[in-house]
Simulated scan of single mutants.
Amino acid sequence: MALIDRFIIEFDTALRSVVGGANAGRPTPGSEVGVTTALDAAERKHAAGLMRVNHVGEVCAQALYQSQKLAARNSQIQQMLDHSGQEEMDHLAWCETRLKELGSHTSYLNPFWYAGSFAIGLVAGLAGDQWSLGFVAETEKQVENHLESHLQKLPETDQRSRAIVDQMRMDEIAHGQAALHAGGVSLPEPIQKIMQAMSKLMTTTAYKI
């Protein structure tokens, strides 16, 4: 692929991540379930807050994968990151669609989330492929834990959101395993703690804004 074509594709991905309009390559999980089945106003608001958090997570994932692809030294690793990034784009589209169905919006801080994550991903990528992949694996592990908690917090009757989150959770597990199998190393505990603190700040803010 020509460099200019690659640039156009990556720029389009970044734009769709920040302003919306992501396209999914797979059908939305739970599409057979009613859009707002048995949800009252409070439940819709709560579900929307959780799905907005999930959407921000996918905005960050796009930025991380894009920046780490730029710094990757191995073409096979670039392909692995590209494949995972495409599935994360499905997640982005699913969450965006669900937020619209719930009558809500994506985070107003998406440009900030994207820029910050891109910078972090670039630093991780420049540290070397093993550390970059280790960062991917740890990120996916933490995302998996968040999604697991959201399955506990979402209203039982919101089967549509729950189906989306469960499929996302399974994909994140696969992405993390792929990064480890490609040579990712375990990150030092202090870095893991910093990542957890940053994630806590993001999830708390994105739930409301």
Rank of each mutant, 00 (worst) to 15 (best):
S161H: 05
I9N: 09
S186L: 09
D158T: 01
H46Q: 12
M1N: 14
Q142P: 02
K100N: 08
T139N: 10
L15F: 14
E140N: 01
T139Y: 06
Y114R: 05
V136C: 00
V53T: 15
V35A: 14
E144M: 10
G57W: 02
H181S: 14
E156P: 10
E189Y: 00
D129G: 07
L99C: 05
A178K: 06
Y114M: 03
P188M: 04
V19P: 01
K100H: 11
S67A: 13
T205H: 11
T139W: 06
A42I: 09
A93W: 02
E189P: 02
M170Y: 08
A38N: 09
T203G: 15
A124P: 00
D12Y: 09
I4G: 08
E140Y: 01
A179G: 05
L3I: 13
A197V: 05
W113L: 02
C60A: 15
E43Q: 08
Q159M: 09
K193E: 08
D40Y: 04
M198P: 14
V18M: 04
G176H: 01
Q196G: 11
L147T: 05
A2H: 10
A22F: 01
T204A: 15
T205P: 10
L64T: 02
K69R: 09
K208C: 15
Q78N: 07
Q130G: 05
N110Q: 13
R160G: 13
L81D: 03
E156W: 12
C95W: 03
K69L: 03
V53Q: 15
R160I: 14
E156G: 13
H46N: 08
G49H: 12
W131L: 14
Q142W: 02
K153R: 14
Q192W: 07
N145S: 15
Q62T: 06
F7W: 12
H55N: 13
Q152H: 09
A163G: 13
E140V: 09
Q159N: 10
L102Y: 01
W94T: 01
M198E: 15
T97R: 10
I194G: 12
K100V: 03
L151D: 00
L187H: 07
G103P: 03
G176N: 01
T203N: 14
F11M: 09
Q79F: 14
D171P: 05
I194R: 12
V123A: 10
S199E: 13
E144L: 10
Q152W: 06
L64R: 05
R44N: 08
R73S: 04
A22Y: 00
S117H: 05
S117F: 04
L187K: 07
A47F: 04
E172W: 09
Q130Y: 03
A41M: 06
N145P: 08
P29E: 03
